[in-house]
Design a protein around this nucleic acid. Structure first.
Lengths: 198, 198
DNA sequence: AAATTAAATGAACGATCATTCATTTTCAAG
DNA sequence: CTTGAAAATGAATGATCGTTCATTTAATTT
């Protein structure tokens, strides 16, 4: 055997992902051509098809990869929590985690929340399941808090979506070069989150 | 003179707007062709150019029209308020207004929030100014509340964006056919909004 | 009814799209 | 060094894009 699978291929595939991520976030999936992506990578358009079967697969790869990494990152965060962590510190842990993680990857976040409509049905279903799994994390914290009488939450699923929309919206305007530091922002949002459920 | 300007033209233009609004919201600006819009209207593609100079102008018309209507609707709502309304009832008025107005026009909201990146710079600047004017409404309510010691808000602009993101996010998942009525939703969100600033 | 203009048609323009494929280049295993 | 597969090239495919335009149709004023 010569040139075992993935010798130089995975490196190029990663550069394709990076180029597509940036372009999709800036112009939108439908407005970006495979030629643009190839040009950014420094390769001919046909070469992209050595790594991704179609443009649609490239989008699905980016979105699914982002959601999987998000869930994995939360698993790691949750592993550092004491067993049976109380609802309030758990909510604080989730809020801070969500803000930090999403602000560090605004391109992937933007794509994963905005390009759902460009996914074919089977791909859409897969991403939706991942998103639901992530929402469930917050929903269960809220449910535990409500059961313990610590949170004033009658509809945990509704509140989950409201809070995640609020937190994720941060990425559309916050820039590190601004007046407020990420820690400042974290404090402000955490106060709003806790206030909104107590 | 025969056929004074806008005899049948404005009616067709309005049907073009309606078709484009629905298609843009479902598939995105870049993914919708002028041929699709024409087909939905029941007309040939060339006829669209009797009403809108370019596809870009059609998008700008939709977004700018939506923002102008939103601002006008708020002016009307604000006119019914007692003079010098206290911050708390003002915040409730704004929250309920925002939810009702946005849930009634989810397509236009989605487009105006999503397709900013597809606007040419001068069009983008115009829409941004309108958006800013609307955000200022909420910011001033928060500022008055903070000054009166009724709201715990240190950064009114940040809180404004957080609250608007939370409220507007409603449109991405709420469906009237669901278990909760619009009034139920209004109550839940209003509790969260007031809780988050007090 | 004639004149006039808005509005729509139908066909065409060049450009660009995602994708394919035969061919060439690259590079590690044998 | 030879070999063989991965990876990239370069050119081509048919389709579809936004837009234009000469012409026809429709409707209203004179």
């Amino acid at each position: 055997m010569a040139r075992p699978s993935g010798a130089k291929g995975e490196e190029t595939a990663e550069r394709v992902r990076a180029a597509a991520l940036s372009l999709f976030a800036r112009q939108g999936y439908a407005a970006v051509s495979m030629r643009q992506i190839a040009s950014e990578v420094g390769v001919q358009p046909g070469a992209l098809y050595n790594h991704f079967p179609t443009k649609q697969d490239l989008l699905k790869d980016l979105m699914s990869g982002h959601m999987a990494a998000l869930l994995a990152a939360w698993e790691q965060e949750a592993a550092t929590a004491p067993a049976d962590e109380a609802p309030k510190p758990a909510l604080e842990r989730f809020t801070r985690f969500h803000i930090r993680y999403h602000l560090a990857r605004t391109d992937a976040v933007f794509i994963s929340y905005m390009e759902l409509r460009n996914l074919e049905p089977e791909n859409f279903a897969g991403i939706e399941a991942q998103r639901r799994a992530y929402e469930d994390v917050l929903t269960r914290i809220l449910e535990r808090g409500a059961a313990a009488g610590e949170f004033r939450v009658s509809e945990p699923r509704v509140v989950t979506r409201a809070l995640i929309a609020m937190l994720t919206g941060l990425g559309t305007w916050y820039r590190p070069s601004g007046r407020l530091s990420e820690t400042d922002i974290e404090t402000i949002y955490l106060n709003m989150v806790t206030g909104s459920v107590t």
